[in-house]
Design a protein around this nucleic acid. Sequence first.
DNA 1: ACCTGAACACCGTTCAAGT
DNA 2: ACCTGAACACCGTTCAAGT
Lengths: 211, 211
Amino acid sequence: VRLTRDAVLAGAIELLDEVGLESLSMRRLSAHLGVQNGATYWHFPHKQALLEAMANAILAGVTDDLDRAAPWHEQLAQLAGKVRAALLAHRDGARVVAGAFAPEPNALAYGEAAIAILVGRGLSHREAAWGAGTISNYVVAQTIDEQAAEALPDHGRSHARRLAEVLADPRFPHTRQAMPHIVATPGDEHFAYGLGLIIDGLRRRVEARAS
Amino acid sequence: VRLTRDAVLAGAIELLDEVGLESLSMRRLSAHLGVQNGATYWHFPHKQALLEAMANAILAGVTDDLDRAAPWHEQLAQLAGKVRAALLAHRDGARVVAGAFAPEPNALAYGEAAIAILVGRGLSHREAAWGAGTISNYVVAQTIDEQAAEALPDHGRSHARRLAEVLADPRFPHTRQAMPHIVATPGDEHFAYGLGLIIDGLRRRVEARAS
DNA sequence: ACCTGAACACCGTTCAAGT
DNA sequence: ACCTGAACACCGTTCAAGT
């Protein structure tokens, strides 16, 4: 049973989808690959390196097929949507990517695309980098929330009940009224709202430049 | 050596500041408290419960002393700034809070304050909840980045060098020019920029309501 | 070059037994 | 009520030895 770096990586993604990030151990991965305990360490120096490679794999193709004819702010929204879709395509995908710190190619390609769009509209590299980072953080954080909500036992009903109890506290009247919208709502509308806030902020700055 | 829930919690925060989240184990905490291995389990049912309590402790007081006379968007910015300061006050504070899922009182108080401000300006509870959530996610994610950058060995110089090497790749020209602004810049300006984007987006929606 | 087998130094959690 | 002591079932990582 000859192993390769790619086989280890593919097996790791497979196992991630099966058991989730919490249960993804190097030992379990070895078992999944039908190999002895330390075998994976020949292909990856440590677990973190494997996780970075997984994050890179999850983000593959996010900069493909962008509609360059669309208005710049729609291109940004499209790009963010593709990243979100990529994260949602794997169990705990958002958390895996959030934990990756090293500059892997696919994450860089995504950042480059976002910065290029903003620089193209006249923002400084500093503003473009910070703006792209804000979007990036939003997409990952929001998708972590979505996947956490998904993963809740019995579709989160017990969690919702516990939340409702706490919100009976008279100190939190508005939170109580907003209850249905507190836990990350599945579907695109919730995601689009927060993204829209950030992009609107960027539009203001781009328009200020233009005048 | 009589233990209490509060003593365990205080010891845990102390140990967090000393060794960081990665090295904060239940066993090490017991040693730090001068007590046997399983002793902490009488006061907290599991590690996650302790971490939630720590997150709550870190967020203590974030809703105090808000300037109710200030414009609403400045109140929001103030609130976000106080949360960031609270997270920065402890090693890995942002990551601890990010990992807390249960609705603890201080996090709820913060959410309530933010939602109340937005509802007070005419937004629906849905928009207010989503807007507050976007700010919340931003503050935590951005502060995680800041604390990660801080924690880098030799002030991140080796990391910056590795990044510079990767960015020699001609595929990433804009990222390369933006290099000094890619890693979370310490100080308030970087933080304020992203926060300003979100708040500006909210201002547009509040103004749309008013007219 | 690539993998096995076994070890090292840890984890979180449980629980009878003590006080 | 609160803690000890010891165990259970795991971890990530290393490394001589094999092929």
